[in-house]
Design a protein around this nucleic acid. Structure first.
Lengths: 226, 226
DNA sequence: ATAACATACTTGATGCATCTTTTTTGACGT
DNA sequence: ACGTCAAAAAAGATGCATCAAGTATGTTAT
């Protein structure tokens, strides 16, 4: 008997959740932005119920917080919290890169190079949104190549929390954010786990600097969720 | 101006979510168990709305899955998925132990020793439930000592997925599950990060063996969520 | 003009009715 | 006995009304 992946229920709440996740990861929200269930319901053309459901999931992801009982806002990020996220990413994405280096096929390599190529084009065009998306696509491709779905889910949550902050810093970082991706691909080609891990760690640490510089100033409410 | 942690809204949905989380982590559900919103609403004495909210959050945590659009079940765990979770725990809990070893105070050490003492008593009494709880308490105490709240949240989600499986295996593992905790405390006393990390990794890998043996047989539906 | 209070509005939480789809069940025919 | 099909019951999804609590507004008295 074959294995089936449980198929996606395309519930309204999932549609809304996905749309809000995309918006967060693309930096289309600022930390501290207020979300109103009824307003979103009107924008999405649904009742409030699916919006509440999506908001609840996002709050569970700690991507948005309830500042007070009736005040839903995009989560802030304290410097300490960002440093912790970065430290976790170093371990988790390092692990993903190691594993990917061991199992990557030539098709996997080609896919990564394609992402890099498009990313170069996006940077050349000054398309900041697309650049952000492609940078994320590169990072998410590694655990996918490695066959680590749990890790992918964890990373997605971390990016959800970083989303409102990276967009600001992406411009400042500029082309440097993609430079460190090339050594990763080279390491994967050579099936060199240690080099792949070190390369992605470099990318995380150096690419994160401009984010860290910005964060000190922002921080509206950088705490728990419901 | 002082820092306030955003206070807990004790919503009904949070109460239900907390209760279901506890039940899952204590192994009071079996993988594949079916959850019915209306039944739970009756048990909790609420309407279906807060139950739906809690279920949605649990589904977001991938602790329960929607096998089909109207069939909510406690998530299964494939062997591969469990191995991945274990590999992630090794890195994350290793990191937590390292950090904890650097910053642990004598009060922290005493708290850990108190947990171990109570855990010994629980084992002596054959109190399997309390033993499971105290084992988890030990593991969660390390990132707490280390001051890593994001990591704690990630671990909590992983334990949520393991919960329905560890209870079965805990008996089989028996006292071995706690033996490896002592070297951790010793390493923290010596402020020896490398030793602390190695000790907790040993605990994860060896303690996980009985779980792994059981898992091969179970696996009703070990996939995605909504 | 300002401060204090009352009123109206905003907004998330909760409960509930209804809808659609799925699952069960049982009768019927082979 | 077994398989098929249809009717009924079950169950989650969606929408919506209401509630309580917080916020804004406007009026009045000093």
């Amino acid at each position: 008997m074959a294995e089936f992946t449980t198929l996606e229920h395309e519930n309204l709440n999932s549609v809304v959740y996905g749309a809000l996740c995309d918006a967060l990861m693309q930096g289309r929200f600022q930390p501290g932005d207020r979300l109103k269930i009824r307003d979103l319901a009107e924008q999405f053309g649904t009742s409030v119920t699916p919006i509440r459901d999506a908001i609840l999931r996002l709050a569970n992801d700690e991507a948005i917080t309830f500042r007070s009982p009736r005040d839903i806002r995009v989560a802030g990020l304290s410097e300490n919290r960002y440093r912790e996220i970065r430290a976790i990413r170093v371990r988790l994405e390092g692990f993903a890169a190691e594993t990917a280096a061991q199992v990557a096929t030539s098709a996997d390599i080609q896919a990564l190079e394609q992402i890099l190529k498009e990313n170069e084009a996006a940077i050349a065009d000054g398309d900041r949104l697309r650049g952000t998306q492609l940078n994320q696509a590169f990072h998410f491709r590694l655990p996918q190549i490695a066959g680590l779905p749990v890790l992918t889910t964890i990373l997605r949550r971390l990016w959800l929390q970083m989303g409102p902050h990276i967009s600001d810093a992406y411009l400042a970082g500029g082309r440097a954010m993609i430079d460190h991706h090339y050594p990763v691909v080279e390491a994967l080609k050579r099936h060199d786990p240690a080099a792949a891990s070190m390369a992605i760690v470099d990318d995380i640490l150096l690419g994160g600097k401009p984010i860290l510089e910005r964060i000190g100033a922002v921080v509206p409410g950088a705490e728990r969720s419901a």
